[in-house]
Computed example of a mutant assay.
Amino acid sequence: MTKPENIQIDTSPPVSDEIRQTTCYMCACRCGINVHMKDDQIVYIEGNRDHPVNKGVLCGKGSSGIMQHLAPSRLRNPMKRVGERGSGEFEEISWDEALDIAAGWLGPIRDSDPKKLALFTGRDQSQSFTGWWAQNYGTPNYAAHGGFCSVNMAAGGIYTMGGAFWEFGQPDWDRTKLFVLFGVAEDHDSNPIKIGLGKVKANGAKVVGVNPIRSGYNAIADEWYGITPGTDGLFIPALIHELMRAGKI
Score class of each variant (00 low, 15 high):
Asp172Arg: 06
Ile249Gln: 02
Gln125Ala: 04
Leu178Gln: 11
Lys3Asn: 03
Ile220Phe: 06
Glu242Thr: 07
Phe90Asp: 10
Asp111Ala: 15
Ala246Thr: 00
Ala71Asn: 15
Glu18Arg: 09
Gly230Gln: 13
Arg30Ala: 00
Lys38Ser: 10
Ile213Asp: 13
Asn141Arg: 06
Val208Lys: 12
Thr22Arg: 00
Glu5Phe: 02
Tyr225Met: 13
Ala143Pro: 00
Asp100Ile: 15
Gly169Arg: 02
Trp133Pro: 02
Pro114His: 12
Leu234Met: 11
Arg175Pro: 04
Asp10Trp: 02
Asn136Tyr: 08
Ala219Gly: 08
Arg49Cys: 07
Met26Pro: 04
Ala164Met: 01
Asn203Val: 11
Gly62Arg: 07
Phe148His: 05
Tyr137Thr: 02
Asp113Thr: 09
Leu181Met: 12
Ile158Arg: 07
Asn152Phe: 08
Tyr44Thr: 12
Cys27Met: 05
Ile193Lys: 08
Trp105Gln: 12
Leu99Gly: 10
Met153Thr: 06
Arg76Asn: 13
Glu46Thr: 14
Pro140Ile: 04
Phe165Asp: 05
Ala246Arg: 08
Asn203Cys: 09
Ser73Val: 13
Gly209Gln: 13
Pro108Trp: 10
Gly247Gln: 00
Asn218Val: 07
His145Gly: 07
Ala103Ser: 14
Glu97Arg: 11
Asn218Asp: 14
Gln21Tyr: 05
Leu234Arg: 07
Ile195Thr: 14
Ile7Lys: 01
Met153Asn: 09
Pro72Ala: 10
Gly65Leu: 05
Gly122Asp: 03
Gly131Phe: 07
Leu119Arg: 06
Thr11Gln: 01
Gly247Met: 00
Gly233Lys: 11
Thr121Ser: 09
Asn191Gln: 14
Trp224Pro: 12
Gly226Trp: 15
Ile193Met: 10
Gln135Pro: 00
Lys194Glu: 15
Phe179Gly: 03
Gly204Glu: 15
Ala28Ser: 02
Glu91His: 11
Phe90Thr: 10
Gly198Pro: 14
Lys199His: 07
Ile9Arg: 00
Met67Ala: 13
Ala155Cys: 03
Tyr217Met: 09
Thr23Trp: 00
Glu18Trp: 05
Cys149Gly: 08
Asp111Glu: 15
Ala71Gln: 10
Asp40Leu: 09
Ala28Glu: 03
Pro14Met: 02
Pro192Ser: 12
Phe90Leu: 05
Gln135Tyr: 06
Met153Arg: 05
Glu84Trp: 11
Gly122Ser: 03
His145Phe: 10
Leu119Phe: 15
Arg214Lys: 15
Val15Pro: 00
Arg49Tyr: 09
Ala219Leu: 12
Arg175Asp: 09
Met1Ala: 01
Gly216Thr: 12
Leu243Gly: 01
His145Thr: 01
Arg76Lys: 13
Leu70Asp: 14
Ile45Asn: 04
Ile236His: 04
Asn77Phe: 12
Gly86Ile: 07
Gly107Val: 10
Phe120Ile: 05
Asp50Tyr: 08
Ile193Thr: 14
Gln8Glu: 01
Arg76Ala: 05
Glu186Asp: 14
Asp189Asn: 13
Ser63Val: 12
Lys199Ser: 06
Gly32Gln: 02
His36Ser: 11
Ala71Asp: 15
Pro140Arg: 07
